[in-house]
């Protein structure tokens, strides 16, 4: 059982990464690493929405905040592995790439993909996030309360 849950944790991590990747970036890395294998659509890319929920007071009862656009698809490789993608936005090409990578990560090329696609992608996204966090940190202030008159 433990193996299965570790496996789905890994899968969750790469699928989450691919969902948030900048437009076209995963495709560029994949095409730089290997030729795309043949596949059959189980579900051609489809654009829809997800209702984003939040909690009242951040921790209380859930409420519907609003929707976001999502593209999803599913495909199967000739060798039988099934790849899924659910990614933010209206991006059919990126959804196809994400599903292909998801399927390929279940084959013997997974290690190669990890080093040539997932790790560089994660590093780039971490760098971009860190750059933003560093700009925010530069705007950190200390307020001093001035002494008020006594009366």
């Amino acid at each position: 059982m433990k193996d299965t849950s570790d496996q789905s944790n890994f899968r969750k991590a790469w699928m989450s990464l691919l969902a948030k990747a900048p437009e076209g970036r995963a495709a560029a890395l994949l095409d730089g690493a290997m030729a795309r294998p043949a596949f059959t659509w189980l579900r051609a890319p489809e654009i829809g929405s997800t209702m984003v929920r939040a909690r009242a007071g951040a921790t209380g009862a859930p409420f519907n905040l609003g929707e976001m656009t999502v593209t999803r698809c599913a495909l199967t490789l000739d060798t039988g592995e099934v790849g899924h993608a659910y990614i933010q936005g209206r991006r059919k090409e990126d959804a196809q790439t994400a599903a292909l990578i998801d399927a390929l990560m279940q084959t013997e090329v997974s290690q190669e993909l990890r080093t040539s696609v997932l790790e560089p992608l994660e590093a780039e996204m971490t760098t971009a996030k860190a750059a933003r966090a560093a700009k925010a940190a530069a705007t950190k202030v200390d307020f001093f309360t001035m002494v008020r008159g006594e009366d």
Binding site: I47, G48, S49, T50, R53, A58, K129, D142
Partner: peptide
């Protein structure tokens, strides 16, 4: 446009405690 989209589902409630904050101020605690 929104009404033309099929709804795939609803998300887990977002965790704003895990927000990557660009801005975060308090008028009550300095």
């Amino acid at each position: 446009y929104r009404t033309t989209l099929p709804r795939f589902g609803a998300s887990e409630p977002v965790d704003t405690g895990a927000m990557a904050c660009d801005r975060r101020i308090s008028a009550t605690f300095k």
